[in-house]
C-alpha cells in the first residue's frame, strides 16, 4: 500500500446520445487484481479527473461480472471485449476505454444493443414447443451434435463480433455474425429443425447472410470462441440448398 502505484485511463465520454464525444483522463490508485470494472467503480466513488477537477462519474453497464452476460462490452485499448474480464495487470497503460460505436451510444460507455435482440427475433432464434395440447417429448438429439451445438449456445449477444465486422456499419444493414450463428444452433436442434426453412428464408432477406464479406474478424474477436465463420459457411451451404428447393421445388419443408 505504501508504494503509490496508479492506473491511468483515457475514457471516451459522451453526455447524451446526440452530443459530441470527448476524452477525459483519470488517474486512480492501483490495487492488486483490479479489472476495468473495479477501476470504473473507483472513478464512480471519487469522480475527479486527472487534472483534479470534479466531474460526473463515468457511466457503463455491467451485470454478471464473469463474462457470460455481455453487458459490459466496450472497446479496451482498441479491441472490443468485456470489461469484467479485462485485468488491469494485463493491459498497457494508459488504458483507453471507448464505447462500441457500431451501436448507438446512450451515455459514455453505455450502448444500445437492441438491434441484436431485434435480429434474434427476426431469425426466429427459439424453438416453438407450445401447442393447444401436450405435444409429448421431442426427438432426441445425438450427443455428438449436442456437443458442438453447445459451443454455439455460448453466445451472450455481447456485440463484439458486430463491432469487429467491417460490414456492420452505418452504410449497411447487415445483421451481423451473432444472430446468424444462432440460426445454425436452432436449426441443429431436432425440434428446432422443424422450422429450419423459415429461419433460412429470414437470413436470405435483405441485410442477411449474403452481406458477410469473409473478413473473419468475428471469429478472431469472439470472447466465447464461437466458430462464427464456420457457422456462416455452413449456413451458406444450407441457403444454397434452400434456394434450389424453393425455386425448383422439394418435398422437404
Amino acid at each position: 500500500m505504501s508504494e503509490n502505484k496508479t492506473v491511468r485511463f483515457i475514457i471516451t465520454r459522451q453526455d447524451r446520445p446526440d452530443s459530441a464525444p470527448y476524452e477525459e483522463e483519470f488517474v486512480i490508485p492501483y490495487r492488486p487484481n483490479m479489472n476495468v470494472i473495479s477501476a470504473l467503480m473507483e472513478i464512480r466513488r471519487n469522480p475527479v479527473n486527472a487534472k483534479g477537477e470534479k466531474t460526473t462519474p463515468v457511466a457503463w453497464e455491467m451485470n454478471c461480472l464473469e463474462e457470460v452476460c455481455g453487458a459490459c462490452s466496450m472497446v479496451i485499448n482498441g479491441k472490443p471485449r468485456q470489461a469484467c474480464a479485462a485485468l488491469i495487470d494485463k493491459l498497457e497503460q494508459p488504458i483507453r476505454l471507448e464505447p462500441m460505436r457500431t451501436f448507438p451510444v446512450i451515455r459514455d460507455l453505455v450502448i444500445d444493443r437492441s438491434r441484436m435482440f431485434d435480429a434474434l427475433k427476426r431469425v426466429k432464434a427459439w424453438i416453438p414447443i407450445d401447442g393447444t395440447y401436450d405435444l409429448g417429448p421431442g426427438p432426441r438429439m445425438p450427443e455428438r451434435k449436442r456437443q458442438w451445438a453447445y459451443e454455439l449456445s455460448k453466445c451472450m449477444t455481447c456485440g463484439v463480433c458486430l463491432e469487429a465486422c467491417p460490414n456492420v456499419n452505418s452504410k449497411s444493414n447487415f445483421i451481423g455474425p451473432a444472430p446468424l450463428s444462432q440460426v445454425r444452433l436452432f436449426n441443429a436442434h431436432p425440434t428446432g429443425a422443424m422450422h429450419k426453412a423459415e429461419r433460412l428464408r429470414a437470413i436470405m432477406g435483405d441485410g442477411g447472410l449474403a452481406n458477410c464479406g469473409n473478413s473473419q474478424n468475428c471469429v478472431q474477436s469472439c470472447p466465447k470462441g464461437i466458430p462464427l465463420t464456420t457457422s456462416i459457411a455452413a449456413l451458406n451451404r444450407d441457403t444454397t440448398i434452400q434456394m434450389f428447393r424453393d425455386f425448383f421445388g422439394s418435398d422437404e419443408v
Partner: peptide, 21 residues
C-alpha cells in the same frame, strides 16, 4: 459492395481482414 465496407485493418490486422480489404 466495396463502398458498403468500412475497413478496419489497423485495429484488426488479421490475414483474412487484409484479404477482405
Amino acid at each position: 459492395i466495396a463502398f458498403t465496407a468500412k475497413f478496419n485493418t489497423s485495429q484488426y490486422g488479421y490475414f483474412r481482414n487484409w484479404m477482405f480489404m
